[in-house]
Design a protein around this nucleic acid. Sequence first.
DNA 1: CTGAGCCTCGCCATTTTTGGGGAGTGCAAA
DNA 2: TTTGCACTCCCCAAAAATGGCGAGGCTCAG
Lengths: 237, 237
Amino acid sequence: MINRLEDLLSTLQAASTLEDLQSVIEALRDYYNVSHAVYHWVNSVGERFGAGTYSAEWVDRYLEKDYLRIDPVIFGCFQRFTPVSWKELDWSSKAAREMFQDALAFGLGNQGFTIPIRGPNGQFALFTLNDNVADEDWERFVDQNTHDLMIIAHELNKKALAFEKWGEESSSPSLSPRELSAMTCLAKGMNRAQAAAELQISEHTLRVYIESARHKLGAMNTTHAVARALSTGIIIV
Amino acid sequence: MINRLEDLLSTLQAASTLEDLQSVIEALRDYYNVSHAVYHWVNSVGERFGAGTYSAEWVDRYLEKDYLRIDPVIFGCFQRFTPVSWKELDWSSKAAREMFQDALAFGLGNQGFTIPIRGPNGQFALFTLNDNVADEDWERFVDQNTHDLMIIAHELNKKALAFEKWGEESSSPSLSPRELSAMTCLAKGMNRAQAAAELQISEHTLRVYIESARHKLGAMNTTHAVARALSTGIIIV
DNA sequence: CTGAGCCTCGCCATTTTTGGGGAGTGCAAA
DNA sequence: TTTGCACTCCCCAAAAATGGCGAGGCTCAG
């Protein structure tokens, strides 16, 4: 049992496999003496990556019932910046309340605290602690530990990003300044005539840049090229 | 002079005007005894929001020379998740090195440490400390203070979001599932025929989604719509 | 000094996208 | 229950983008 936060962070930073990460999450749960600790990556598509102490049954249930789409935790965190205690979220929808009851039946505690984490290219993940205690106790717990938990959440996500080899397409092609400008104009919604005017070049020259950028980015069309330029971060709108 | 971090954070949390925020940033600079501290929001359009101790001359210069586009700090941080010391960034471009020299001439220190911060709807901001010390001293400083600085960065951004009421006017419009799918397909480079086949609907129906998404996103054309969907984070490629 | 990459310009034909019209079903909240 | 919104389908003509053919001047590094 790890009983110092620094040791926990060191263990986390040293983790080199998914199993290591899972152990760290379990150690976290024990360290904070709560029912569950979970880190998971969220995509529109579905769960690409995660580690936690929820039962396999609950995870299956969650996926099977497509709770991802109605879970106020996901939804709420996606739209906010700061960590949140579950009680603060919007449980007004019937489906959400049913999900909550279902969760209790599957062994989750009635209290939760979730930290949203955002990485490059729209990456989004959550780190959650869950427990079964009274409101005021949970509030006190959260107040005391928020900052530490935020650091932990950050370190967890750092590891997850490293594991997922997010930098695999690391060699984002380098576009020339004019090509970048052209992409930026298009991303801002200009058509070719407007963009050419903006850059003070002929529309044809602009086309050359767009084509060139498209080829460099390996894109099928202009929209694709702009999408790639945006999501690799080589242009910012 | 504030000399306890907790007091600094309390002051920050109590800040209710931009001037308050500016004072906190200055207090931060003094607390850490560095040359400069800066928080700023980043958009291609330009600085919408920021507070810092850089001289007005340098800020003007920065904007005037469009350094936003070549600054490796902006660039590097946009593509990474973790905080970074400036020395670790890519200064190989000539323009970047010239900018650095220029910065020194305007009173910036040779060392920097910048924390990228991401909020909902693709919001992106940076928190930077800048100083003039030897490499090893800076490294030690960074090692000792990274976690605290991350918390501060988070709190700063929380304040900034509250001020700009980002969640109010520029909250990203909600697209329907089909509209999101359509946008995603286009962002992946499909043309309308391919996307329609992918979604198993007629090309015309697909058009309806695209148009609808375009209107909701306030976009001029398809490329613009996809760009907005990507940069607000409502779709991920 | 030579090649590579960047910046600039033009024309033609074809494909794709866009901007207007409509029209009907079903679900879920007000 | 009504109202709204999401989802699905169709036609036509105009506008925009694409693909492929050129060309020359510039700078920077090998």
